[in-house]
Simulated scan of single mutants.
Amino acid sequence: MSDLSYGNLFYLLLLGGVLVFWFFIQNRENLGRKVQQLAAWGLIFLGTIAAIGLWDDIRQTALPSQMVYASEGRIELPRAPDGHYYMMLEINGAPIRFMVDTGASGMVLTRQDANRAGIDAAGLPYFSQAMTANGPVQTAPVRLGEVRLGEITDTGFPAFVNSGEMGQSLVGMSYLQRFDKLEISRGQMVLER
């Protein structure tokens, strides 16, 4: 700690001491109750300080983020609290969050995500069919103008738009196989191209 930090700490302690002394002098008649209230405020203060100090760890646990190392062609996806891996891709310039599904053969967009990417989901011909865990669903094949992950860009990428309700867009093996390496280790999925 620098001299300035020690000076600030001393000032805060002195100010806190004066406030506590004034508090006790003003409230001598209900001292027991005031000590309980002071203890409660002290615990709230300590909890706030602890939350601020641990914010980076809390944020990483609650909202893990992908790391893109463009110069190395490396992407690291942390496992989310629900046990899945999620990838943020730009589809035709629109950021869309995908769940990584190594059991899916293709990339499947929800109707909402397709609309965000500039694809008219209502006007698509849903003539193809995909098998899911919940049974068959109608899909429409599309060709995405641009799929971007950091500095990695693919153009004319084939995908599907799901005709039914789907909670999350999926990125499957048709995209993942474009990487030279896919590894899952210690709660991270690592992709290298």
Rank of each mutant, 00 (worst) to 15 (best):
L4Q: 15
G164V: 12
Q26S: 10
R97W: 01
M87W: 05
R33G: 11
L14A: 11
P78M: 05
G42Q: 05
N134E: 15
A62I: 14
D113L: 11
F160Y: 15
A70L: 05
R178V: 00
L12D: 12
G172Y: 00
W41F: 15
Q60H: 07
F21L: 10
L149Q: 01
Y6K: 13
F10C: 09
F45G: 08
D3I: 02
D154H: 11
N8M: 15
M107L: 15
S185I: 06
Y11S: 10
T102N: 12
G167D: 12
Q129R: 15
T153L: 11
R193G: 02
F45Y: 10
E90G: 01
L19S: 04
F98E: 01
I49C: 07
L176A: 00
D180T: 04
T102F: 02
Q66S: 08
V68F: 00
N134Y: 03
W55P: 06
Q168T: 15
D101M: 05
S71V: 08
A51W: 09
M87Q: 07
D120T: 08
E76Q: 12
L15Q: 14
F21S: 12
Y85K: 06
R193I: 08
I52D: 10
P81I: 09
Y86S: 11
N115G: 07
I25H: 12
Q112F: 13
T102W: 06
N92A: 06
A70K: 13
A122E: 15
V137Y: 06
L77I: 13
L38G: 03
R148I: 09
A94D: 04
V161F: 02
L46C: 07
I96D: 00
G42E: 03
V190F: 00
L77N: 00
L9V: 07
L4K: 14
L13M: 13
P158M: 08
Q37D: 04
L12M: 07
G106Q: 05
T48Q: 08
P125Y: 09
T48P: 00
Q37E: 09
G118I: 05
T61M: 08
W41R: 06
G150A: 06
F21K: 08
E183I: 05
V20M: 07
E183R: 09
S105Y: 05
Q138S: 15
Q66M: 14
L170Q: 07
I25M: 08
L31I: 13
E151D: 14
E146R: 13
I52R: 04
F10G: 04
D3S: 14
S163H: 12
I75A: 00
F10H: 10
S65G: 08
G73K: 06
A121M: 07
I49E: 06
Y69F: 10
Y6L: 14
S2N: 11
A39D: 09
I44Q: 04
N92F: 08
F127Q: 10
R186Q: 13
T102E: 03
A104Q: 02
V190L: 12
I184Q: 08
A121Y: 01
Q138V: 06
G118P: 07
T139A: 07
I52T: 12
L9N: 12
G187H: 02
Q188T: 11
G32R: 10
S5H: 14
P158L: 08
L38I: 05
P141H: 03
